[in-house]
Amino acid sequence: MGEPVRYQVAGALVAQTALLSVLAATVGLGLWAWSAGIAHAVVGAVLLLWSARRSGRRRLGVADGITLTRAVLGGGVLALAVDGGAVWTLVALAAVALALDLVDGAAARRSGTESGFGAAFDMETDALLILVLSAFVALTLGPWVLVIGLMRYAFGAAAWLAPWLRGPLPPSRARKAVAAVQGAVLVVAAAEVLSAVVATVLVASALAALAWSFGRDVLGLWSAARPRAARAPRPVSASART
């Protein structure tokens, strides 16, 4: 990963086109699917280059390269979801992308290259994949499943109106576990190996866990943002002590 960011991003665009070509030759892709996959790659490339320039990042590290691979796989998942067919191919690509999510973080920690840029890139890649999977599952279980994919973006939109939501969050294993569960549950539901009732209960449980996780973080940010005077206990008067 020694090349400048623009060359790495260009390589990802080529890889995305190659993946879409393979999918078109094997399972078939319609025009809308091709358009969605290419749009995903182009918009993602522009945002990545802008983010890298803003953060002063000249090259992508090994962990960022893994995340970039996951983004390419996510483009394939999006194209297949738009096309509406080849469910098992979609499930396979999504499963690999989710599995690699366990690798990029470990690679960053092992190489000592953890950064805010890498964390944001990883988070946005995850969020888009979850949104695509939730939209695909919503076609069979109902539009309520979309809440899983939209919650991250709703939180981001709310942060523009309420700056205190932009505060730093402490590391949390529970938050990471809940996030991982969303992808795993949606992949299982997308595979359509479970009955509609079981799949509905499973996805609803994942949504409830996600709502709890976001709710806990919102309360934590709100508590941290309150003025110290509001958080400090009020002094007890002499008469009250008596």
Rank of each mutant, 00 (worst) to 15 (best):
145 V>Y: 04
155 F>T: 04
110 R>W: 10
147 V>N: 00
104 D>H: 08
100 L>D: 14
103 V>L: 15
108 A>W: 15
154 A>Q: 11
93 L>A: 13
126 D>E: 14
118 G>W: 06
126 D>N: 07
164 W>P: 03
116 G>F: 06
107 A>W: 10
97 A>I: 08
154 A>K: 02
99 A>K: 02
140 T>R: 15
125 T>W: 00
138 A>L: 09
107 A>C: 04
144 W>G: 08
155 F>W: 12
93 L>F: 13
115 S>G: 12
110 R>I: 03
93 L>P: 12
123 M>S: 06
143 P>I: 13
151 M>I: 15
142 G>W: 11
102 L>E: 00
100 L>K: 05
117 F>R: 10
90 L>F: 04
97 A>Q: 09
150 L>A: 12
146 L>Q: 01
102 L>V: 02
163 P>E: 12
164 W>L: 06
152 R>S: 03
121 F>D: 01
108 A>E: 13
141 L>C: 09
103 V>E: 07
111 S>D: 12
127 A>R: 11
117 F>P: 08
131 L>A: 12
157 A>R: 08
112 G>N: 09
131 L>K: 12
99 A>M: 11
105 G>E: 10
145 V>F: 02
95 A>I: 02
160 W>I: 07
164 W>I: 00
137 V>D: 04
129 L>T: 02
126 D>G: 03
146 L>W: 11
147 V>G: 00
167 G>Y: 10
116 G>A: 12
135 A>D: 08
116 G>P: 10
99 A>W: 01
161 L>T: 06
114 E>M: 03
135 A>W: 14
166 R>W: 00
123 M>G: 04
136 F>A: 12
100 L>H: 14
130 I>Y: 07
147 V>Y: 03
117 F>Y: 12
129 L>V: 12
127 A>T: 09
120 A>N: 13
113 T>W: 04
155 F>V: 06
158 A>G: 15
166 R>N: 13
122 D>R: 09
99 A>Y: 04
136 F>S: 02
133 L>I: 02
119 A>C: 04
128 L>T: 15
125 T>L: 01
141 L>D: 04
122 D>S: 09
148 I>G: 00
129 L>M: 10
129 L>E: 01
139 L>E: 14
96 V>Q: 09
152 R>C: 02
126 D>M: 05
108 A>L: 08
113 T>C: 07
89 T>R: 01
154 A>F: 04
127 A>F: 05
137 V>T: 10
117 F>A: 11
155 F>I: 06
101 D>C: 00
127 A>M: 02
163 P>W: 05
127 A>I: 01
102 L>F: 09
166 R>M: 09
136 F>Q: 06
135 A>T: 08
111 S>L: 14
103 V>A: 15
112 G>E: 13
122 D>M: 05
140 T>P: 00
158 A>S: 14
148 I>W: 02
90 L>K: 11
163 P>F: 06
154 A>P: 03
159 A>N: 04
110 R>N: 01
158 A>D: 03
89 T>C: 13
161 L>I: 03
112 G>Y: 09
92 A>V: 15
136 F>T: 05
132 V>P: 01
106 A>D: 13
117 F>D: 12
97 A>C: 04
166 R>E: 11
146 L>S: 01
101 D>Q: 11
96 V>N: 04
